[in-house]
Design a protein around this nucleic acid. Structure first.
Length: 554
RNA sequence: GCGCGAUUAGCUCAGUUGGAUAGAGCGUUGGCCUCCGGAGCCAAAGGUCAGUGGUUCGAGUCCACUAUCGCGCGCCA
């Protein structure tokens, strides 16, 4: 509808030029916005104000000329008003809004999808938590966000890969091994000196017990260095299994699990660093190899290879990101904890050195989650090393509430997550409110079936039976869904979908409360069924992107 | 100290590329069940968009400075 109107305006403008009513020949992009107030019509454009300078006429004069050239825009415009400093306000013919219902019914689950991305290959890398402990609530927010962003991009016509980067090569694996080894010896009755920086969570003891139940006694006989290696590997595999299981139960699926260790096994780090060296992007100083990140806006240069010859984490990360582009992705999106924001300039500097545009890599920062219960902060465990796990929260409030809550705010702003609210079965709980709208429509469908009233098939609804303001309002908000999805895709902001859903649900609940769908008048009943089922389709399409289910009854 | 981000209603937050009288939920106050699921709906009150200056037809939005808060500044990962 918006596009049709835009085209009519563009045509009218051209007509003005060819008839000599306007002279500049300037054709700005025609911006149509949704006015905040209904007195300002359904759409408004600032076209006349933009043209004022080039035309050397007042905006209102220009607006008047454009209006007369536009006429009724092929019947879709009811009324055009010129207001304020020179806005042109369009009031659409009421009936034309219902065309979107046919479109929704025809396209079904494809309604809202677009080809914005033109099949461009994008990688979204997210979670990527170190395999040294269970996923906690912060990882959960990253998981929900990354997954939703990936789904939104898919819906916008990108070809998306979801990747998890496993940090299985660094010191933390050794430390994990040592922590398990010490707990294992503790279980064997020894007194151990547990290091300050060891992993102190109870899960370490759990892993040690598992190991002991298997071949722990043999391990205890091994030389320490060897035993540490076995413990580290076993611990990492155990934790990775937990992570996979938790993510699966959270409804998050990855296309690829990428091992940092494999970078070394394939010599990729050395290979990629060599490329940098040849490009003159590195230098040696004090026995270490440095990257000239300052040439590309970083605060200081960074070490790739330490003076003792071992690579830094940065080195493998550089190789990893270089390889992402070599794998053919045109866009790479990383989802990181917000505390890593200082790391962005470094990685961007590397990519800039390799000739990539800064926007080829986008980093989404995930802010902290404050866990509350009925308004009171939930304390993060008794001992150090303990935190609230994703698993615990999903078990308590369910997957749907969890995912919805994680996505309710912009990802880079802190989030209050109230466990009590997330479980509540009332309108106060936003997840429930939205899902309930869907369930209600399903309930209406069941009643309709019982009464023998059929939902009209595509194109068979009689819109003349839809005359109410609320019905037009519903059609209008449904028509906005593709835009909401598009802006969420452009900005990488899933919360826009959440806000849209809450608004749509509110308009529906309000309508439901005032008007009966199933009435004595079969014609009206059928038309309203058609309308509310379009609502149901859009609710389902949007919830699917967020990874939230669409219950038929609750 | 330097860098990044934030500051919008009592609370938690939205606010598209700069547009007209700044929005929502919660909380507060007051209403609505003969009715497809009241697991819901309607209404009211509530604002110096942190402050100052600038850019322009027009600023919550862009720029500069100030204040406050958060985070980051390893040859850690």
């Amino acid at each position: 509808m918006k596009d049709r109107l835009r085209q009519h305006i563009a045509d009218a403008l051209q007509a003005c030029f060819s008839q000599g009513l306007l002279h500049s020949g300037v054709t700005p992009e025609i911006v149509l916005e949704l006015p905040a107030r209904s007195e300002h019509g359904d759409f408004a454009t600032n076209l006349a104000m933009v043209l004022a300078k080039a035309e050397k006429k007042s905006p209102r004069q220009i607006a008047e000329i454009v209006r007369s050239a536009l006429g009724d825009a092929g019947g879709i415009v009811d009324k055009v008003e010129i207001a304020g400093p020179g806005f042109i306000n369009f009031f659409l013919a009421p009936g034309c809004w219902f065309g979107v219902l046919d479109e929704i019914t025809e396209k079904g689950s494809a309604f809202g999808r677009s080809s914005l991305g033109c099949g461009m290959r994008v990688q979204v890398e997210f979670v990527s938590a170190n395999p040294t402990g269970p996923l906690h609530i912060g990882h959960g927010r990253g998981a929900a966000t990354g997954d939703a962003v990936a789904s939104i991009l898919e819906a916008a016509g990108f070809e998306v890969q979801r990747e998890y980067y496993i940090n299985d090569a660094g010191n933390q694996v050794n430390l994990l091994g040592r922590s398990i080894w010490l707990r294992l010896r503790e279980l064997l009755g020894e007194t151990v000196d547990f290091p300050e920086d060891g992993y102190r969570g109870d899960y370490i003891r759990e892993i040690a017990r598992d190991l002991l139940g298997g071949k722990g006694l043999e391990i205890a006989q091994l030389p320490e260095a060897e035993a540490l290696g076995v413990c580290g590997l076993f611990g990492m595999q155990t934790v990775l299994d937990w992570i996979r299981r938790d993510l699966q139960e959270f409804g998050v699926r990855f296309d690829n699990w990428y091992s940092e260790r494999s970078l070394y096994e394939r010599d990729m780090v050395a290979l990629e660093l060599d490329k940098l060296r040849r490009k003159g992007l590195t230098y040696e100083d004090e026995g270490a190899l440095w990257f000239r990140t300052t040439d590309y806006g970083d605060d200081k240069d960074r070490v790739l290879i330490r003076s003792d010859g071992t690579p830094t984490y940065f080195a493998s990360d550089v190789a990893y990101h270089m390889e992402k582009f070599e794998r053919g992705f045109h866009r790479v999106i990383d989802v990181w904890g917000a505390d890593h924001h200082g790391y962005i300039p470094r990685i961007k500097a590397v990519l800039a050195g390799l000739g990539h545009a800064p926007e080829d890599l986008e980093v989404l920062l995930i802010q902290m989650v404050n866990l509350l219960r009925a308004g009171e902060p939930v304390t993060m465990g008794k001992r150090s090393g303990e935190f609230v796990t994703l698993r615990d929260v999903v078990e308590e409030v369910g997957r749907d509430a969890c995912r919805f809550f994680f996505l309710m705010r912009r990802s880079d702003s802190q989030l209050d997550f109230d466990l009590a609210l997330a479980k509540e079965q009332s309108a106060d709980n936003p997840v429930f409110y939205v899902q309930y709208a869907h369930a209600r429509i399903c309930s209406i469908n069941r009643n309709a079936a019982e009464q023998g009233v059929e939902v009209p098939k595509h194109g068979e609804a009689d819109f003349s039976a839809l005359r109410l303001e609320e019905e037009i309002a519903l059609a209008k908000i449904l028509a906005r869904y593709p835009e909401a999805l598009e802006s969420a895709a452009k900005q990488l902001e899933p919360h826009r979908i959440v806000f849209y859903l809450q608004e749509l649900a509110a308009v529906f609940h309000s309508y439901y409360n005032r008007q009966r769908v199933l009435t004595d008048d079969a014609q009206i009943s059928r038309a309203r069924l058609y309308l509310v089922n379009a609502v149901r389709t859009v609710l389902a399409n949007a919830l699917l992107l967020l990874g939230v289910s669409t219950p038929e009854q609750m």
